[in-house]
Each structure stands twice: as C-alpha cells, then as structure tokens.
C-alpha cells in the first residue's frame, strides 16, 4: 500500500512537472487542431481539411503555401461547427512533411501536418542492352596460344625423333 501511494505521488509529481513545462508551449501559439485527410498524400491528390476552430457558420482561409498549393477557402460544412476546405498537392512538391494552417474569420488559428509521399515506381527497369554478352576473347586467345605452343613442341619432338632414327 505504502509503495503504491509513493508511486502515485511520484506519478502526480511527474505529471505536474510535465504540465508546468508544456503549458506555456500550448498557450504560445494557441493553435487549434486542423484535421487533414488523407494525412499522407501523393502529388495530384485532393486533400480535405476541417476544423472546429472557426465556430458555427464560420469561415476561414487556409494556407498551403508550404507545399506550393497556395491559399484555399474553408466554408461551413453539413456538420455543424466544422468548416471544410480542399486543395490539391502539386506535382512538383517534394516528399516531406508540410505544415498547413487556417486563419478563421473569428481570429482563431488551426494547424495540421500533411506528409507528401510520391507513388513508388512500378514494373521492371530496362537497365541493359546486352553489350556485355559475347565470347571470352581472353580465354580464346589463351587457348590459341596453348595450341600454338603444342604445335611447336610437337614439331620439335618429331624432328628429334626423326634425327634419332637416322643416328641408329
């Protein structure tokens, strides 16, 4: 029991400590959450963002300049209290994570991240034409040299044998 109590106290202290350190950060920007769907997209994909930050019947302007998609409008959606906007990921956007922000008419700001991933290649890669394929000229040359040496040796042997026969 005692250990549990101590553990709990310890946890409470840690949580409090984290609270102390993170609270100012959370307050600094006062950003609301911007939902980005899909959160990972390839060039050409239409991305939809929404937030509750702009309030009922609110409007806002989205900023997707970080990935070269410019600004876009956010309008009230069929869901109450949510504004929705869309933009398209440009073809030239490099892979990476980009911050998207929305400035609401009511002065509030929302932020979210979009990860841009390009579609992977497909199919085989044409990486050869066959120019390396052919006879092994070095080996053929070596073989020819061995044959030539054998011919010379054979001729020499025959001549010696012939002269030996004469001698006897």
């Amino acid at each position: 029991m005692r250990t549990t109590a101590r553990l709990l106290t310890g946890t409470a202290v840690s949580v409090a400590a984290i609270g102390v350190f993170t609270a100012p950060l959370a307050h600094a920007g006062d950003f609301a959450t911007l939902e980005v769907y899909p959160s990972s997209a390839s060039p050409g994909t239409t991305v939809t963002v929404n937030t509750t930050a702009c309030g009922k019947h609110g409007r806002g302007v989205g900023d997707a300049n970080s990935l070269g998609a410019g600004e876009f409008q956010l309008n009230p959606s069929t869901h109450k209290e949510v504004v929705v906007g869309q933009f398209t990921v440009p073809q030239h956007t490099k892979p990476g994570t980009y911050g998207i922000s929305v400035a609401c008419d009511n002065g509030k700001t929302a932020r979210g991240d979009l990860t841009v991933k390009h579609r992977p290649p497909s199919g085989h890669v044409p990486t050869g034409v066959g120019g390396s394929i052919g006879p092994d000229t070095a080996q053929v040359t070596a073989g020819a040299a061995v044959l030539a040496a054998a011919a010379v040796g054979g001729a020499w042997l025959l001549r010696r044998r012939a002269s030996g026969a004469q001698g006897h």
Partner: peptide
C-alpha cells in the same frame, strides 16, 4: 587444354 579453352571461350559470357 587448348581446344577446350578455345571452344569454351567462344561461348557467350
């Protein structure tokens, strides 16, 4: 050996 080298070497690598 010489014949083998020439024959084998003439095949495509």
């Amino acid at each position: 050996v010489g014949l083998w080298l020439v024959q084998n070497g003439s095949e495509d690598v």
